[in-house]
Amino acid sequence: MTQKKRRLFTDEQKAEAVRIVEQADKPVSQVAKELGIGVSTVHNWIRQAKIDRQSDPKGALTSAERKELVALRRELKRVEMERDFLKKAANLLCQGDWGPYELMDAEKVNYPITLMCKVLKLARSGYYAWVNREVSPRQQENEILSNQIHQIHQESRQTYGSPRIHAALLAKGFRVGRQRVRRLMAKLGICARRKRPFKVTTTDSVHSLPIAENILNRDFTSTEPDRAWVADMTYIATTEGWLYLAVIIDLFSRRVVGWSMAEHMRTELVSTALEAALGHRIPAAAGLVFHSDRGSQYASSDYRKALEISDITCSMSRRANCWDNAVAESFFGTLKTELVHPVVFATRAKAKTVIAEWIEVFYNRQRIHSTIGYLAPVQLEEQYWLNLGQPMTL
């Protein structure tokens, strides 16, 4: 159904209609009917004509004043749009990620082309020539790369920044520079999740239990699996209360080889994580160094005995020195930035399920690590055992 077009009248038509009403000895309704105009419309014209004749500065606006007000409002809106577009253009163009025509094309739904050309001092013909140009090979590549970047970012659970996305593109066979990836990510509005500072308060180092020597001494490199493990604990907030997580990480592949979660920080928490690690890993023939902080859980006689039974050498950080266990601290920073901070866990059970899936599926098997050549931990271990011609320990 076609919508009826609204009828518009000139000032001359309005003035003549008012004169006809004033000079005719007829009701307004009859004159309106004869002219084919709504009665309320004619009444409005008569009322406005009286206002125009009085021209009272303190009274209602005259027709001329109404026109001027409409024009001023239109001009104000135009100036505000120019200001808003200029601020946006200055920000994006100065970063070097956008060209002027690209910016105009992206913002054409928000601002008129004529206005943007005026602000940027460009000719409209230049913009339309750019729009109708043939797509260059470079632009075709950018389109393909943009699709790949978006896909990789989604597969990373929206956590990867330009270094990891660049590495993932190289692994897929794309020849592309890091800066180009960064520019395309900026256009797509994609970025890595930002870390925020958090204070670790799970270490109880005020005790009289024996402390092991710092054998690891910040040597976080390893040439074979199960030669050096680092361990630590952290806490995760839920609406039910704190959930505590203990992990053990292999320094060779950065794989979490053992973990445990509970609503307490007793020695059983870290013991269960050690049990999980030893359930599928065998210490290297050259020996295994187990490094942790000085917490009472790790210094307890039961835990040290468990390490002794498995012929594992104990190593501990210096007092109040988190850098001695930087790998474990870094893991918890990643966990909280990429998983914990963006959500609120309703229950401890829900948090356990989500964190267990993140560790075993995403972190160990999918998430690439810059320290190990942008490979996933399990992927690195598979390559290691394949090179030795031996089956991998899962």
Rank of each mutant, 00 (worst) to 15 (best):
R7K: 14
L394M: 13
A17R: 00
T337D: 00
A228T: 05
L122N: 02
V256E: 10
K67H: 07
Q151I: 08
L335Y: 08
T2L: 04
Q383S: 06
A306Q: 14
F9G: 07
A123C: 11
R78C: 10
E143Y: 03
P163Y: 03
V327A: 10
R318Y: 14
L120Q: 01
A246S: 06
L86E: 15
A286W: 00
A328P: 03
R138G: 00
T223M: 14
L72K: 14
W130D: 04
S260R: 08
G287K: 03
K199T: 15
A320H: 07
V119C: 02
F252V: 04
R178K: 14
A277E: 12
H291R: 01
H280D: 09
E360C: 10
Y363A: 06
N132T: 02
P100S: 04
I309A: 15
T41I: 10
W358D: 07
S310F: 00
Q151Y: 13
R157E: 10
A376L: 06
S300F: 02
G279A: 06
E75V: 01
L307K: 08
I372R: 04
A129S: 12
A231Q: 09
Q154A: 15
I248A: 06
A231I: 04
G173N: 03
F332M: 00
R7T: 13
A167Y: 06
T347K: 00
D52C: 13
L120I: 03
E275M: 05
C117M: 06
S292F: 02
A237E: 08
I249N: 08
E308W: 05
S55M: 06
V361D: 12
S63R: 15
I236V: 12
F252I: 00
S315M: 02
S300D: 02
K195D: 00
P57I: 13
V206Q: 15
R367G: 11
P225M: 06
K26A: 15
A237V: 12
V327E: 05
S205G: 07
V361Q: 09
W259C: 00
I20C: 10
L72P: 00
Q297N: 11
I215Y: 01
D324Y: 06
Y298K: 03
S330Q: 05
A17G: 12
V176T: 11
Q158F: 12
E134A: 11
P197H: 10
R281E: 11
N364E: 11
E22H: 12
V270Y: 09
V340G: 07
T353W: 11
I51T: 11
T10G: 12
A167F: 09
P27K: 13
N321E: 09
Y127Q: 01
R254I: 10
D56K: 13
C94W: 00
A284H: 08
K58A: 15
S125Y: 07
K199A: 13
K67M: 09
R304Y: 09
K33G: 15
G373N: 03
V28G: 05
Q379T: 15
G389N: 08
A17M: 08
I144S: 09
K5Y: 00
